[in-house]
Amino acid sequence: MGLDEFGAGRTAVQERVEEFKSKRRERHVRSAVYGIYDRQSGECLYIGEAKWLISRLNDHYNTRSGSQIKAFVEADDGIDIDASTVWGRTDVKYVSGIDGGKQGRRRVEAALIRELEPRYNSR
């Protein structure tokens, strides 16, 4: 049964449901270099590398153990992001299939940090 059958009009939620249903299944991304971006400004906030991407992103956004990205934003008076809504305000980009294991990921990570100068990476 679809949402239309309940008499509901087209909503943002329904659009997300349809988008989800139309996507092909993807395998879990393991080895990757990723960037966390402010969706509104487009600014790169953080670049990292991970052997298991979903696990690493959980470290950044997990509310039980304390979100790393939320902590960065809370401590930063120069950014207009409300720390309580950081998950909804950010997007993640990643590249996978990098040769050379951890060393290969670290080379790509370092190159991206130099080029993009993310706000929350140590310099």
Rank of each mutant, 00 (worst) to 15 (best):
M1N: 10
G2L: 09
G2M: 05
D4Y: 11
F6R: 09
G7N: 07
A8L: 15
A8V: 15
A8E: 15
A8K: 10
G9T: 11
R10H: 09
T11P: 06
V13C: 08
Q14H: 06
Q14T: 09
E15P: 00
R16Q: 14
E18L: 13
E18G: 05
E19P: 00
K21E: 14
S22C: 06
S22M: 08
K23Y: 11
K23V: 07
R24W: 04
R25V: 10
R25D: 07
R25Y: 10
E26C: 04
H28W: 03
H28N: 09
V29C: 05
S31K: 11
S31H: 14
A32D: 00
V33T: 08
Y34R: 11
G35P: 00
I36R: 00
Y37T: 11
R39P: 01
Q40L: 12
S41F: 08
S41H: 09
S41M: 09
S41K: 07
G42V: 04
G42D: 06
G42T: 03
G42Q: 04
E43C: 07
L45Y: 06
L45A: 09
L45W: 02
Y46G: 05
Y46V: 04
I47V: 15
G48P: 01
E49F: 07
E49D: 12
A50H: 03
K51E: 15
K51P: 01
K51A: 11
W52N: 15
I54M: 11
S55W: 07
S55M: 07
S55G: 13
S55Y: 09
R56W: 01
R56N: 08
L57W: 02
D59W: 00
D59Q: 15
D59I: 04
T63V: 14
T63Y: 07
T63I: 13
R64V: 12
S65K: 15
S65A: 11
G66F: 07
G66V: 08
G66Q: 08
I69P: 02
I69E: 02
K70G: 00
K70M: 03
A71D: 13
A71V: 03
V73D: 01
V73M: 04
E74S: 14
A75Y: 04
A75D: 13
A75W: 02
D76Y: 06
D76I: 03
D77R: 14
G78R: 13
I79Y: 04
D82G: 10
S84T: 15
S84Y: 06
T85Y: 11
T85H: 13
V86M: 04
W87N: 10
W87K: 14
G88Q: 05
R89N: 14
T90L: 00
D91Y: 06
V92G: 06
K93C: 14
Y94C: 10
V95M: 04
V95W: 01
V95A: 07
G97N: 02
G97L: 01
G97M: 02
D99P: 06
D99A: 12
G100M: 06
G101M: 02
K102N: 10
R106E: 14
R106I: 06
R107P: 00
R107Q: 10
R107N: 08
V108C: 03
V108I: 14
A110M: 09
A111G: 08
I113Y: 02
R114W: 04
R114K: 12
R114D: 08
L116H: 12
L116P: 02
L116K: 10
E117D: 10
P118V: 01
P118D: 03
P118R: 01
R119G: 01
R119K: 03
R119S: 02
Y120D: 07
Y120V: 05
S122M: 10
R123Y: 13
R123N: 12
